[in-house]
Computed example of a mutant assay.
Amino acid sequence: MRRTIMSISATSKADCEHENVYAYEAPVRLWHWINAFCILALALTGYFIGSPLPAVPGEANANFLMGYIRFSHFAAGQILAVALILRIYWVFVGNVHARQIFYVPFWSKRFWREWLHEVRFYMFLTQNPLKYAGHNPLSQLVMLLMFTLPLTFMVITGFALYGEGVGRDSWEYTLFGWVFWLSPNSQSVHSFHHLGMWVILIFVMIHIYVAVREDIVSRDSIVSSMISGERLSKHTED
């Protein structure tokens, strides 16, 4: 995997270099923001599906609030699933940065050496961050374990639960009903699906913190890169 790396300590005190790399292509950025809105909608509606409102005002036949909540959840989930399929397609046709969050080079000693350096940097044990055009090794591993795999798990279990509701003759149950062979207890699938939501939400909070931190500490344009696609790095040493 080709990465652009530079240590801040390699620059002189009088120098100030700017490196601009087009890292994230338009489909990757579009997928990022679709995910953001879908996850927000799924988390909110999923919470109310798991903990329904105790009552709604008026006659029961005049209220469809929970129905609208469920419809919004299912719609957001289907959009998320289609976007994930298209994103997997882009892994094969996009640039090198498009495939980073879908695999980790466990066999590479260099990867783990740089991963350890990033851990030390985030623990404030070193002041010399390495510069990457794409994801650094730590973020690459975290995104795989806390986002890519959990997101795939949520799509699979979500369609399995939806297929159980619409019936065994549905295409959803035909494709995803095997989930209930692994876990015959439907409530267990519901529970794991619920826990998966919290894994992704915890990741989102970490992701936002790290993105803002990188902008400030490492002087990398992390936040704006998901709008423009360009990673701007400022190499200085005070």
Rank of each mutant, 00 (worst) to 15 (best):
F74P: 02
I222F: 02
M154Y: 05
F102Y: 13
A160K: 04
A43M: 10
I85F: 09
L141S: 07
P57S: 13
E164C: 04
F159V: 09
P129C: 04
T174H: 11
Q78L: 15
I101H: 10
R2N: 11
F48R: 11
Y103W: 13
L182A: 13
A133Y: 05
W31N: 13
A43C: 10
T152M: 11
I34L: 12
C16A: 13
F48V: 14
S12D: 14
S108T: 00
V179R: 03
Y209N: 00
N95H: 03
G67E: 11
N61Y: 11
H193Q: 09
H135W: 10
L125K: 13
D220G: 09
A14F: 10
I5W: 01
V56H: 05
G134S: 05
E118I: 11
H193N: 11
A36F: 14
G158L: 01
E214R: 08
V212M: 05
Y24G: 07
M226H: 07
V199W: 00
E237A: 09
G196S: 07
K109M: 08
V189P: 04
E237F: 10
L130T: 09
L65I: 15
P27F: 03
W198A: 01
F147M: 15
R3L: 10
S225T: 10
F111A: 00
M146Q: 04
T126E: 02
S183D: 00
L65G: 07
V199H: 00
G50M: 06
A75E: 04
G163W: 07
M226V: 07
M205N: 08
N35L: 08
V93W: 04
S218F: 05
L138G: 04
Y122G: 02
S9Y: 06
H193V: 12
G67S: 10
Y132W: 14
A83W: 08
D238W: 12
T126P: 01
I227Q: 03
W198P: 06
E59Y: 09
L161I: 13
F74R: 10
L80R: 03
H73F: 08
A133V: 01
H135I: 05
Y122M: 08
H235R: 06
V212F: 10
V212L: 15
M1P: 05
A41L: 13
S228F: 03
E214K: 08
